[in-house]
Nucleic acid binder design. Structure first.
Lengths: 218, 218
DNA sequence: CGCCGGATTGATCAGTTTCAAGGCATGTGG
DNA sequence: CCACATGCCTTGAAACTGATCAATCCGGCG
């Protein structure tokens, strides 16, 4: 039996500068980590969905902030405990490394996206990634605002809206958000979506194995 | 006594897709890691200078390529050996984690740069970083082409040239490259250079401790 | 019914890229 | 030892992509 903690939409889970006290797992809902510049610019670093682990940062203090995207339940373990165990237990240490490696791979990928891709490519990359991670045969349920996507892609919400329109006019994806709260999008033509990206830009992110997660959260 | 291997300017040390066979240390000279898209776009992921470690990637195959920027000497240890030792030796495992963490922190920083900063800010961030890492009281010796800087900053060489001109007109840095091969640049006003960046954008990257390096390369 | 949050669309503007033309050191051959 | 080619940087002008500003729309909700 584990405690879960619940957060409302846009509620802060931790903030840049906070001591790293826990490692978290999303039980349900979704989380974004982001970095805010004083003038209002935001960079979203990553999204996390049910089952995924976040908040394991290398330094003693968070460099990212984390916020709930929608009503979200999370559970957590003390970082201190993780550290202690990793000191003496190799499979624990291994788990910590695995998670750090996954974050690193994601960041590597992300900076090619930010540094080299144009907006259409970025948008395609985003949908492809979401489709891999949370798509149910082509249908992606996103509860985030367009602004979140924009800040993840290093662009603006208007531009994202326009490129979704474009992809949808090309018959590649289909907008489904009839409601303002629950946004559903269907990938009609994954092949074409993939073809928008430069061939070598790929990257299936390795997901963290169940074993690693169980070890950490046991 | 350790073997060192020597590479000429622009020579490839390893290539994306190669099996990860070694972990490397720069003995002298400098190295860039980069990712090429088929259409010629390049993203430089990082630069490495004397004493620094590179090539320790999470997956079995490299996702980056590495090239010598100038005439460069490196030494290396087998990745397999590192892996084996990390399996049984906690301080070894810790060393691997430390390096992965440093790369992660750098990548985090880099994607805020790529996602949110304009070109002047990016250039300032670059010089600040170089000044921290290889500056000798304000004087930075860079043997890389403008193109390398541009591809690191996610922009073009012309744009980099223009922003250096701008910084130099503002009296913040001074170009010194009389020669085409050895480029020296002096930071005249670090405070102003810092002031170009948004306040919270900071990030002193932790350097890898001597101990960790000795452990790995012993 | 009318307000509110958020998305879309349009028009304009700015920052960057692209294309093109020198310029300046270094290196090479006569 | 000079002349010319080469490699790389700088600068200029034109073209474009994406940002910004602004108006409108639409569904949910009080």
């Amino acid at each position: 039996m584990k405690f879960t903690y619940s957060f409302q939409r846009d509620e802060e889970i931790y903030r840049r500068g906070d001591a790293v006290a826990y490692v978290y797992q999303v039980v349900s809902g979704s989380v974004r980590i982001l970095s805010k510049l004083p003038d209002g610019r935001r960079q979203v670093g990553a999204f996390y969905f049910a089952g995924e682990i976040f908040g394991l940062e290398p330094e003693t203090h968070h460099v990212w902030s984390a916020e709930a995207i929608e009503t979200t339940a999370i559970c957590r373990v003390e970082r201190e405990k993780v550290n202690r165990k990793a000191q003496s237990n190799l499979s624990y240490a291994r788990g910590v490394l695995k998670i750090t490696e996954r974050d690193l791979l994601h960041a590597e990928d992300h900076r090619i996206l930010l540094g080299q891709l144009d907006v259409t490519e970025r948008t395609a990359a985003f949908f492809l990634q979401m489709n891999n991670r949370i798509g149910v045969n082509g249908t992606i349920e996103l509860n985030m605002r367009t602004e979140d996507i924009a800040d993840y892609l290093g662009t603006t919400l208007e531009t994202v809206s326009r490129s979704i329109t474009k992809l949808s006019q090309m018959g590649i994806v289909e907008r489904q958000w009839s409601s303002r709260i629950l946004r559903i999008l269907t990938v009609r033509n994954p092949r074409k979506l993939r073809a928008i990206l430069p061939p070598s830009y790929a990257l299936e992110l390795p997901s963290i194995s169940e074993t690693v997660i169980r070890t950490l959260f046991a």
